[in-house]
């Protein structure tokens, strides 16, 4: 974490959001995701002034995921939910988790990717996220990686005002941010670094290099995520 902060300082990143532990698992057992969340909370205990954390859950284990959500978010310091590739996100098992996250006012960051080479067995597409969101208009979602294939991902989530999109991950391909702003509005677009797979540099470039206004860059780099977190931070009495 100290090394991460060192690079963040160099690149002008004041705060970041972390999740998942030191040893990632596609389908973590409850014991494993508890361990990963403990690692995140341990890191935050030293760096809470620089980072927020999301709880990592596995919808294959609904009961244990709900318990973990309460342990780490309701009763702990974490402020959102991270879902990765354990189960397609349009599955009914996610409903209870999403409903509880909405009660806690915790945003849900769902990894999405649309691969012509073939997705992982449980890996969600942005279309599947849209199907989940259709059932949960009360919750706040973040479409991880803008679906990877962003020209399709942006279209898939476009109708749903409670989905934000995360620019992180993938190459710094020109045009991504401009299309996201054009189709979703700048207020629904979030900067993400996707560290440690990517770099602050390549992902900041998606915002700093985009042909959008300085005001929109400010929204994407900071203001929008503050607004996403404001309800839960307010409920926890935390000043962003």
């Amino acid at each position: 974490m100290a090394r991460l902060v060192e690079y963040a300082d160099r690149m002008g990143v004041a705060r970041f959001c972390v999740f998942m532990g030191m040893d990632w698992n596609y389908e973590p057992t409850p014991e494993k995701f508890r361990q990963e969340n403990d690692e995140v909370m341990q890191a935050l205990s030293h760096w809470h002034h620089r980072a927020f954390g999301f709880v990592y859950l596995n919808p294959q284990y609904v009961k244990e995921s709900l318990q973990e959500l309460d342990r780490c978010v309701s009763d702990g310091p974490l402020v959102g939910v991270k879902l990765w590739v354990a189960k397609h996100c349009n599955a009914p098992e996610l409903d209870a988790i999403v409903a509880r996250a909405a009660e806690l006012r915790a945003p849900i960051l769902q990894h999405t990717w649309l691969k012509i080479t073939g997705n992982l067995p449980g890996e969600s597409t942005p279309m599947e996220l849209a199907a989940l969101v259709e059932r949960h208009p009360e919750a706040t979602f973040i479409c991880g990686h803008t679906g990877g294939d962003w020209e399709q991902g942006i279209r898939a989530i476009r109708p749903y005002r409670n989905i934000y999109t995360d620019l992180g991950g993938g190459d710094p391909t020109a045009g991504l941010t401009e299309m996201a702003v054009r189709e979703l509005g700048a207020e629904r677009v979030l900067y993400g670094s996707d560290i440690g797979g990517r770099s602050f540099a390549s992902q900041l470039a998606k915002v700093l290099g985009a042909r959008i206004s300085d005001e929109d860059k400010q929204r994407i780099l900071a203001d929008n995520f503050k607004r996403v977190l404001a309800p839960i931070l307010g409920a926890k009495g935390i000043t962003p």
Binding site: D171, P172, T173, A174, F200, A201, A205, L208, G209, A210
Partner: peptide, 18 residues
């Protein structure tokens, strides 16, 4: 890799590595 990539990315990579 401009213009397919945002060219500022490569400049920022130099900065990140100090």
């Amino acid at each position: 890799h401009a213009p397919l990539f945002y060219p500022v990315a490569a400049v920022l990579k130099l900065k990140e590595s100090a």
